[in-house]
Write a protein that binds this DNA or RNA. Sequence first.
DNA 1: ATGAAAGCGCTAACAG
DNA 2: CTGTTAGCGCTTTCAT
Lengths: 332, 332
Amino acid sequence: MSILLKDIANATGFSTNTVSRAMRNDSKISEATTELIQATAKKMGYIPNTIASSMRSNYSKMIGVISADSANTFFSEVIRGIEAMASKAGYHIILASTEESAKKESDLIRVFLGRKIDGIIAMPVFDNSPNHLDLYRNLEIPYIFAGRRLDGLENHSILHNDRNGQRKVIEHLIEKGHKKILYIAGPKKISNSTDRLAGLADAYANNSMDVDPDLIVEGLGHIEDGYYLTNQALNRGMGFTAIACFNDMIAMGALKSLYENNLHVPQDIEVFGYDNLYMSQFMQPSLSTVDVPKFRLGYVAMESIIAHIQDPKLAYETKDFPTRLVFRETTR
Amino acid sequence: MSILLKDIANATGFSTNTVSRAMRNDSKISEATTELIQATAKKMGYIPNTIASSMRSNYSKMIGVISADSANTFFSEVIRGIEAMASKAGYHIILASTEESAKKESDLIRVFLGRKIDGIIAMPVFDNSPNHLDLYRNLEIPYIFAGRRLDGLENHSILHNDRNGQRKVIEHLIEKGHKKILYIAGPKKISNSTDRLAGLADAYANNSMDVDPDLIVEGLGHIEDGYYLTNQALNRGMGFTAIACFNDMIAMGALKSLYENNLHVPQDIEVFGYDNLYMSQFMQPSLSTVDVPKFRLGYVAMESIIAHIQDPKLAYETKDFPTRLVFRETTR
DNA sequence: ATGAAAGCGCTAACAG
DNA sequence: CTGTTAGCGCTTTCAT
């Protein structure tokens, strides 16, 4: 069976308590004792029982991470940032994905709370009903939203200036003379969809142009949405000369559709994605997009949650990272 | 503060013990009592303290999942299968990725054991040193390898006939008249690399052909490996007319390189991937590959681990799923 | 069908 | 610097 603190105590002659403290490098234990105990523990193959520890200390060193969409590598890249900071700070993460379901999100929060996590990093569904907001408002532990927001809880968010980024994309395309730009939006249940649409509206407004609702279509943000929505738009003969996409996954699907319809990118149609996924530079042609600092987003979210755990009185403050257009082969 | 069983006991007039049993649908508690208690618990917003429960019962309903590479959606697809079965059976998973580091793998096992998981599903690094094997041999809980294997522990594996699959790819290409096939292998620290290479050797042997070591190059299995290894091979002027890749990620990188070198696929060069990632059908041109039942692999791994938890005496048996060639646009 | 008591392994609180 | 005692919230064991 497994080794307990008591076994190490018996082996070294110290009390269980001293062993416990030596294992945690408590400064009140002499260096010699600490070394002896830790060496013995290692020799005996001691593995601390984390759940017994958290039960007593009310402190699990575990952060619940609620991701949104396991099919989109955007989230893997954010999570790598979260993990990097977590492991640096001696935290572990417990990770699950809602697949954009508010129900699953609320279930996950319950499960995580039952496991006594110290904090939550979430990419929440954009559901601003009181029920959904209460999920977070009622939380007794710190929480941070990574790359997304919820109405009234914006101060918990680390964002990346979606509105600005999308505005710049559309303005750039307008400047280059495009009169009809197809926009493939994301679903309304993602805050970024709303924010990026607002950026699009800004761009048209700044150019004294009206938004043509026929040129805005909406999908779920997956690769197949980009594919079939582009097909549909082409079939309807809408005469657009550029496509701006809510994200890179959609853009990948759009490129596929254009290719199959013998439309050349960027000669016939220019395409812009959003997110700058790692793989986007390897697409054919390589994708012009908006860079979002994904790793940093995760990293900073973890830093922030730790800061709030260590100082529960620390005020929450919205962070907003700048975005940057990345020009590759899908634009001229 | 959070609601405890004791609080529900006070509210209903029953003992803590009865409440505990009613919450778990213990058959010895009357239906009326059970209903009353569960209704009260719901009304009070009770969230069971899972760690207190597992501490006492020695049973966490948590499975540790050790994945290998967060940049490859192969694993996300397997994990979706794992999660589907887990949630169906009332289990939760705690997930982490080794990024193909044996050190990280062993650290993760320790952490997971400390959290008192009931079983492990791993995609282990192909390190057959006694130390690494002991990591698993010494385990007191059930473990299953999903899609990978370790020497001497094959009976813990659920595999997918890599050797056969890769053999069929190479045989197919030979049959179509290719004399020089570039093979971009995966790293030796992944068992699938070894097995797929063996399949390649089988194919050549069956056709009484020698393996040309110059036509086998090795990368880490990421998209950029496919890209730069194809570039290098082209620069060396090796005159191959087909490329078979260890996986789809490599194939994506290879396609990019071929495109940039003005080589047409499949007219000038045919390309085969392996894994049949969801996105591979959306690549341009769409990728011919070998289908691996990823979701099912995860699903069955979870089924299996649960079976072994419920019956610790259950014998371990290697499972081996069939593979299937998928012909798309990168082959003629 | 229900209750009382004990204890899982650890750490906090207090003592010295 | 180290030891003793108690208790985290639950479930097991034993009793009725």
